[in-house]
């Protein structure tokens, strides 16, 4: 690990100001916020991240889950994954988020991991994590060995000829199904980004994973007011039963009226270069009866545009079954 300066942030403006001195944001940034540290320190030990300045944001008062007057739920960027998953508000109204969080990592890691850090966690692509190998995301222009190499766990949606890495977060998939927004405080003030626009497709610039600029601090994530009667579920499929990343996962928020689907959001994890919303599945389901035939048709529609890599063709059928099963579980809830 390279040497760095370590500073404790004393307030949001000071933290933003320090980070704004960074020449770039994201990959290669010389100034980095540190929250739980479970992504950042892991990658610093591997020399994948080499910041010269760390700004410890744990002292900032961003650790509350608050109900806003209009019914929305505001989640501070420093709320730990375990606290969020067990918060009464989340368990009652946003079960899909609680389930997604509890399916991720381990109890210890969830006690450390924060909402902001989880949102920004990096890919687990093994080439990205090995600084002895080329990787466009880590070192732009060096190539993507995963395309002809080990890509079993990588993406089938949103890939480019420069990068096929998966966004590994479970939380992000639930946030997409819930249509969350991300609040950002930057050198030029505050702004709000819908979750669907927060993460970027790799395209020709896989080192840019989201819209953040130097100095931008995520302050909170906000969920829309709960939909009364909406059924929700998160289903995660992986190589072992626990403490493992998703090969495919599905977050569902669905409402039924008179036996027909009147509202549905379908988001897929483990398969996309960014948290993947399936408008195709949603479109196929709207107005339809909640039955096995329609679920399978929605799954077919969702995976229609999938581009499997040399080793992950199995994810196409796996994701379909994941969608069908998640829809079945969600719609059968009382």
């Amino acid at each position: 690990m390279e040497l760095f300066k370590f500073t404790k942030a004393t307030g949001i403006p000071q933290a933003v100001q320090m980070a704004a001195m960074s020449k770039t944001a994201q990959q290669g940034a010389d100034v980095r916020f540190i929250a739980g540290g479970t992504t950042l320190l892991d990658l610093m030990k591997l020399n994948v991240e080499v910041p010269t300045q760390l700004v410890d944001i744990n002292g900032l008062a961003l650790d509350k889950v608050e109900r806003l007057p209009d019914g929305r739920l505001r989640i501070g960027a420093l709320v730990r994954n375990s606290d969020l998953a067990h918060s009464a508000e989340v368990q009652k109204d946003y079960a899909v988020l609680s389930q997604a969080l509890l399916s991720g990592a381990s109890a210890q890691l969830r006690n450390m991991a924060t909402t902001g850090g989880n949102l920004l966690q990096r890919t687990r692509c093994m080439y990205f994590r090995n600084d002895a190998l080329p990787c466009n995301k880590r070192e732009p222009g060096t190539g993507c060995p995963a395309i002809e190499g080990d890509n079993r766990t990588l993406a089938i949606f949103g890939t480019s000829s420069d990068c096929i890495a998966t966004n590994p977060s479970d939380m992000n998939i639930a946030l997409v199904a819930l249509e969350a927004t991300v609040q950002v405080q930057g050198p030029k003030g505050e702004r709000e980004v819908p979750i669907g626009e927060f993460h970027l497709l790799p395209g020709k610039t896989p080192h840019r994973e989201n819209v953040l600029e130097p100095g931008d601090l995520v302050t909170s994530v906000t969920l829309p007011a709960a939909k009364a009667g909406a059924k929700q579920t998160y289903l995660k499929l992986r190589d072992r039963a626990s403490y493992e990343f998703a090969l495919a996962s599905t977050a569902i928020v669905v409402e039924l009226h008179g036996g027909k689907i009147s509202y549905v959001r379908v988001a897929l994890g483990g398969v996309g270069t960014k948290p993947w919303r399936s408008h195709e599945a949603e479109h196929a389901l709207m107005g339809k009866a909640a039955d096995a035939k329609n679920f399978r048709a929605a799954a077919e529609a969702a995976l229609h545009g999938a581009k499997p890599q040399s080793e992950n063709g199995f994810k196409v059928e796996l994701a379909k079954r994941c969608i069908v099963h998640a829809l079945t579980v969600a719609t059968q809830q009382a």
């Binding site: 030990k45 591997l46 890919t123 687990r124 692509c125 093994m126 990205f128 994590r129 090995n130 190499g149 080990d150 079993r152 766990t153 190589d239 072992r240 403490y243 493992e244 990343f245």
Partner: peptide, 15 residues
């Protein structure tokens, strides 16, 4: 530790 996944089930013989 460089392997992305938690487990070692994904060790790639190709690498």
């Amino acid at each position: 530790s460089r392997l992305g996944a938690v487990g070692v089930a994904t060790v790639a013989p190709a690498v």
